[in-house]
Amino acid sequence: MYGWIWRKLPGSLPLKVVQALVLVLAVVALLLFVVFPWIEPLLPFNQVTTTG
């Protein structure tokens, strides 16, 4: 899959590196600002019970 993305990116090697970096940063930003906040209430980490 990564090879397919690399072959589809236009331009020379330096341009492909910059484009790949932008793609990675876009995916990370999408995960951090959209996906993780949306799924966080569904995770059981906030339901901590302690006995004392």
Rank of each mutant, 00 (worst) to 15 (best):
residue 40 E to T: 09
residue 21 L to E: 12
residue 49 T to W: 03
residue 26 A to G: 15
residue 28 V to A: 06
residue 29 A to N: 11
residue 25 L to G: 10
residue 30 L to I: 12
residue 18 V to R: 08
residue 23 L to P: 06
residue 21 L to H: 12
residue 46 N to I: 11
residue 20 A to W: 11
residue 36 F to G: 02
residue 24 V to W: 12
residue 45 F to Q: 01
residue 35 V to Q: 00
residue 47 Q to L: 14
residue 48 V to I: 15
residue 20 A to T: 10
residue 20 A to D: 12
residue 27 V to Y: 12
residue 47 Q to D: 03
residue 28 V to Y: 10
residue 18 V to D: 01
residue 50 T to F: 04
residue 17 V to S: 04
residue 39 I to W: 02
residue 46 N to T: 09
residue 18 V to A: 05
residue 42 L to Q: 07
residue 36 F to Y: 13
residue 40 E to G: 01
residue 33 F to I: 09
residue 46 N to D: 05
residue 17 V to F: 09
residue 33 F to L: 06
residue 38 W to N: 01
residue 18 V to Y: 14
residue 37 P to K: 06
residue 43 L to S: 07
residue 45 F to M: 02
residue 29 A to C: 13
residue 35 V to D: 00
residue 31 L to P: 00
residue 45 F to N: 00
residue 35 V to M: 11
residue 29 A to K: 00
residue 36 F to M: 02
residue 44 P to I: 03
residue 47 Q to K: 03
residue 45 F to Y: 03
residue 35 V to F: 14
residue 40 E to L: 14
residue 41 P to K: 00
residue 42 L to V: 07
residue 50 T to S: 10
residue 39 I to E: 07
residue 37 P to Y: 06
residue 32 L to D: 06
residue 38 W to E: 03
residue 42 L to Y: 14
residue 50 T to V: 15
residue 40 E to H: 06
residue 44 P to E: 00
residue 16 K to M: 12
residue 20 A to K: 06
residue 47 Q to Y: 01
residue 49 T to L: 13
residue 49 T to Y: 11
residue 36 F to N: 07
residue 29 A to F: 04
residue 20 A to G: 11
residue 27 V to K: 02
residue 25 L to C: 14
residue 49 T to K: 01
residue 47 Q to G: 02
residue 32 L to P: 00
residue 34 V to S: 12
residue 26 A to R: 13
residue 32 L to A: 12
residue 40 E to Q: 01
residue 28 V to M: 03
residue 50 T to N: 02
residue 39 I to Q: 09
residue 16 K to S: 09
residue 28 V to G: 08
residue 34 V to L: 10
residue 27 V to A: 14
residue 22 V to P: 09
residue 48 V to L: 15
residue 43 L to H: 02
residue 21 L to N: 10
residue 44 P to G: 00
residue 27 V to N: 06
residue 39 I to N: 05
residue 29 A to T: 15
residue 22 V to Y: 08
residue 40 E to M: 13
residue 23 L to G: 12
residue 24 V to H: 08
residue 25 L to F: 08
residue 47 Q to E: 11
residue 48 V to Q: 02
residue 20 A to Q: 14
residue 23 L to C: 08
residue 29 A to V: 13
residue 48 V to E: 08
residue 27 V to W: 05
residue 46 N to L: 10
residue 44 P to A: 02
residue 34 V to G: 04
residue 36 F to V: 15
residue 50 T to H: 07
residue 42 L to N: 07
residue 26 A to I: 07
residue 27 V to G: 11
residue 37 P to T: 08
residue 41 P to V: 11
residue 30 L to K: 08
residue 50 T to M: 06
residue 31 L to Y: 13
residue 21 L to A: 15
residue 50 T to C: 10
residue 20 A to M: 13
residue 40 E to D: 11
residue 43 L to C: 08
residue 19 Q to F: 07
residue 22 V to I: 11
residue 19 Q to W: 08
residue 28 V to L: 14
residue 38 W to Y: 14
residue 44 P to D: 05
residue 46 N to P: 00
residue 17 V to E: 07
residue 19 Q to D: 02
residue 46 N to S: 09
residue 31 L to W: 11
residue 24 V to L: 15
residue 48 V to S: 05
residue 45 F to H: 10
residue 36 F to T: 09
residue 24 V to M: 05
residue 33 F to Y: 04
